[in-house]
């Protein structure tokens, strides 16, 4: 099980949405542009006036992955080796999220395959977005 999460001011909307099984990503309304990880300002225009959050579909594509054999995180060491993939959102392939790809065998990651979001409880009960390969996908 992953470490718990203690939301901070900047990321609270993301974590609160996850507890409601929704995926939201920070967005600058002026630029109409998503950004992740979130920031105090728009990474493109620099403004803090139009920063908000947008719910996204929870569909993405596996961009890349590695197999972790030596993690520095103590609670995950018993699970080694494990996949850590990067997925890119369908709404904006520039936006990345990490995933252990639950259900995908170690080092058998189908790069380019579609995935969909699921929500997984962490050690303190906070839910976190995870990603699973869409059944039937090549």
């Amino acid at each position: 099980m992953k470490q718990g999460v203690v939301p901070d001011d900047l990321t609270r909307p993301f974590w609160e949405a996850a507890n409601e099984r929704r995926l939201v990503i920070q967005c600058c309304a002026a630029c109409d542009r998503l950004q992740h990880p979130p920031g105090r300002r728009c990474h493109q225009c620099g403004s803090d006036e139009h920063i908000g959050w947008r719910e996204v579909s929870g569909r993405a594509t596996i961009y890349n992955y590695c197999v972790v054999h030596d993690t520095p995180v103590r609670v995950l060491q018993q699970d080694q080796p494990f996949n850590v993939a990067v997925v890119m959102l369908d709404e904006d392939p520039g936006i990345q999220m990490y995933s252990h790809l639950p259900g995908t065998p170690v080092d058998e990651v189908p790069v380019g395959a579609p995935v969909e979001v699921v929500f997984e409880a962490t050690a303190n009960g906070q839910f976190v977005p995870e990603w699973q390969v869409v059944e039937g996908a090549p």
């Binding site: 470490q3 999460v5 990321t11 990880p37 995180v73 962490t122």
Partner: peptide
């Protein structure tokens, strides 16, 4: 947590 949770 947005990146460190996955233990990379």
């Amino acid at each position: 947590a947005l990146s460190a949770l996955w233990g990379a």
